[in-house]
Simulated assay, not measured.
Amino acid sequence: METSAATPTRPPHQAATSPSPSPSSSLRLWRPAAQRNMRNQWSHLSAAKEQWLAAVADGRAHASALVNVHLSCRNMPAMDLGVLKDMPGIRDKANSKLALREEQYSGMLLSAYKEMVCQLSYLVEASHSMRCFSKAAPNCSITQFSDRQDNLNDSGDGGGAPVFKWFSVLEFESLAQELVQMFVSEQKLKRLLLLEFLSIALKEGVELQTSLNWGDELYDERLGSQRPGNLPLHEVLQVYLTTWHANMNINRSRIGEIFELVEEEMKIKLS
């Protein structure tokens, strides 16, 4: 007697399991989140770049004012005061006012430099936040994403797939790093110039810590060893001002090209 083959059935105790999402399914979920994050980070880069350049312009104005006041103070002993020359203590009073203005402009220059450091930190942070990672959410069936890595097996780059049309996360990161490196290099140069500008306001016998106390990374033994006898000449100070204004490590043409590439890929305008 023949028996028909029984249709296999799942044992009652065996629960159904959800299939793991396919790579194409995961990519479809990842890409919109990655695109949003990429737009945000490049917007942050654009804004920080503009704020950094604005702080540079402010710093040059303050440095120029500081240099002019310092030169006036330096030239005061030989300055022809005309009808005022016979007034008692006129030169001492003038020197006191110039010294006060030196202090004010030094503080304003330092504040501008602080702002540059702050904006540079934003540039670096944005350049390091372009990846989009799957977020482990307990008891949640909805796939979520974050710029923080929860799973060491998730590289956050979509397996090298394009985020929009052509560029992968790695290619976006490469462009961002090229951009940021310009500002890092220029910040180092600005630091050296800052030390020179601030040193001209130091008076013999005045300890460095009484006037400069922001961030150990700004100051080193080199500045502390400088004294008025080693002050730079007028011509040298003018070269310092020109160098500050020139942004010698900033290739504006290349920066423009980078943002044009990114804007074309994303189909948005960042600035």
Rank of each mutant, 00 (worst) to 15 (best):
Q119P: 05
R10C: 06
D86R: 12
W214I: 12
I142Y: 09
S168A: 06
S168E: 08
C73I: 14
N75A: 09
S64K: 04
S168I: 00
V83F: 13
G156V: 09
V163F: 01
P232W: 00
A94P: 07
L123V: 02
I255G: 05
H128W: 12
L193F: 10
M266D: 00
L189S: 05
A78C: 08
S22N: 09
N230K: 15
D150I: 03
E125I: 02
R36N: 08
K85R: 06
N75Q: 11
K267F: 03
R101G: 11
K188G: 09
E263Y: 00
L71Y: 08
Q149T: 06
F145E: 03
C140V: 14
R74M: 10
R10M: 13
N95R: 11
N37T: 04
S43L: 02
A78P: 10
P8M: 13
R101Q: 14
S253M: 07
V56A: 08
P228R: 06
K267S: 05
G205S: 11
L192T: 14
M182G: 04
K188Y: 07
S185N: 11
L66W: 13
A55L: 10
L193W: 04
M1V: 08
G215H: 11
Q177H: 12
K190S: 15
G107H: 02
L202P: 02
E186A: 01
W42L: 02
L120V: 02
E263L: 02
L29P: 04
Y219S: 11
A161Y: 06
L81D: 08
L198K: 11
A48T: 00
A94M: 14
T143G: 10
E204A: 15
N153P: 07
F167T: 01
A136G: 12
P19D: 15
S225K: 15
S185C: 07
R254P: 03
S271M: 03
A47M: 02
Y219P: 03
G59I: 06
I268R: 01
L179N: 02
S25Y: 15
P32N: 09
W52I: 05
K269V: 03
V169P: 03
E221K: 13
A112H: 00
D86C: 06
F167Q: 04
Y240C: 13
R91C: 05
Q144C: 14
E217P: 12
E173W: 01
S111H: 08
V206G: 04
K203T: 15
M79V: 03
N75L: 14
N151L: 08
A48Q: 03
L192G: 15
I90Q: 08
L202S: 08
F167H: 03
M38C: 02
P138S: 05
R252M: 15
L193H: 06
L100P: 07
D86A: 05
P77R: 06
L231F: 11
V83N: 13
S22M: 07
N213G: 10
F183K: 01
V124Y: 01
Y240R: 13
N249Y: 15
S64H: 09
S20H: 10
S225V: 12
F183R: 01
D147Y: 10
L98C: 02
P228E: 05
S146A: 07
K114Q: 13
S271D: 11
H13Q: 14
N251E: 07
V236Y: 15
A65Y: 04
N153T: 13
S111D: 06
Q119A: 09
L202M: 09
Q104E: 15
Q119F: 07
D80Y: 12
S199R: 14
P23T: 09
N95Y: 15
E196H: 12
M266N: 01
L241W: 13
